[in-house]
Design a protein around this nucleic acid. Structure first.
Lengths: 189, 189
DNA sequence: TGTGAGCGATGACAAAAGTCGATGTTTTAC
DNA sequence: GTAAAACATCGACTTTTGTCATCGCTCACA
């Protein structure tokens, strides 16, 4: 499984990364069932997760205590509540597994140690941050410029995997649409 | 004016930043009128801007060619189309001044040179990226969890300056609300 | 193997948001 | 200083989205 992570890093930073094995060994392999809570808002986010297999749900609650989806992240991607992880302040978001997962987790201490002892580890962090940022910019732009129906079409075109893999309820939440409305609009396509 | 930028950097990274003056001198001071186009989608984003004074509008077009707002950025903040700036690919977003501005711009070559010659410049970039990311996470969460009226209340509470400073049209666009709807909802408060 | 919880679809209705045209006001450009 | 353009608001109307109750289906599991 660690192969997936090794490959992820080397395809982005090349094979010349010093101490790659040292970096890899600072990650802890975690196997989860579905619906496992990885982070609860109010707690400090202790880990950054690399998803080797499976799918994570990052969500917050609206005023009626409904879950609303900030992001859904699939394998070969990084997931965390970076703002809490970076600052040590309480998280404002929740993270939960959607499916059984194979994760590689690095905690704050190990992360810090890597930052200090492996000069190029910086680049790994930069990669994570840039990818997360890119994703959120796209996401904002779909919200401000597309209607519900257009967002469904967008998902089918650019994230077709999510359409087949997730429950309708989750997809609707990801798109910021009520689940009943999603059901009706889908029938119209 | 460069004082604003110097202060911005030192309050975040401390006074011990080597070569601070060298870093500062790699920025070009730009004075603009309002409604000046700084970036057109399709072009490569050549600069990262620090806003010493004024306000920038980052926008895309929806299918009816209406401008929709990805972000509005005010003084003491950084603004760019980082994805294009970082990759050298064409920008998908437009940037324009909302007010007369005092900007400090650094182009890709200078940026690259700073990255290579000033080890700690990395931290400046990290700061920019982290702040941009934090902002976009908040923004997504307001879109997925709040109604139009709640978003207006949110803006009044957390960005009161924007409420008084921008045109209703721009605020509405920032909040992802039709301008007529915004006008009516505002009256209801 | 039954049963209860959760899911997805749908109809009827309610609420929210968007559109359009009109009007008066403010701002901008010359 | 003045004309033109852009802006803000409003009423009437349409469209979109949300809510609620219902029903059939699946699936985990006791």
């Amino acid at each position: 499984m660690i192969e997936v992570l090794r490959k992820h890093i080397t395809t982005r930073l090349g094979n010349d990364l010093d101490h790659l094995e040292k970096v890899l060994s600072s990650f802890k392999h975690i196997t989860t069932k579905r619906n496992e809570q990885l982070l609860q808002q109010g707690n400090i986010c202790k880990n950054v997760y690399f998803i080797a297999k499976g799918c994570l749900h990052v969500y917050v609650y609206d005023k009626d205590h409904n879950e609303t989806t900030r992001d859904i992240v699939i394998e070969d991607n990084w997931c965390s509540e970076l703002l809490s992880f970076g600052s040590g302040k309480p998280a404002t978001e929740n993270i939960r597994t959607v499916e059984p997962c194979e994760l590689f987790a690095i905690d704050r201490q190990s992360f810090q140690k890597m930052m200090e002892t492996v000069p190029q580890f910086d680049k790994v962090y930069k990669q994570i941050l840039e990818a997360s940022y890119a994703n959120s910019v796209y996401r904002i732009n779909t919200f401000v410029s597309l209607t519900a129906l257009e967002r469904i079409r967008w998902l089918m075109e650019y994230r077709p995997l999510l359409m087949t893999r997730l429950s309708s309820k989750l997809i609707a939440s990801y798109l910021g649409i009520n689940k009943d409305v999603f059901s009706r609009l889908k029938a119209k396509l």
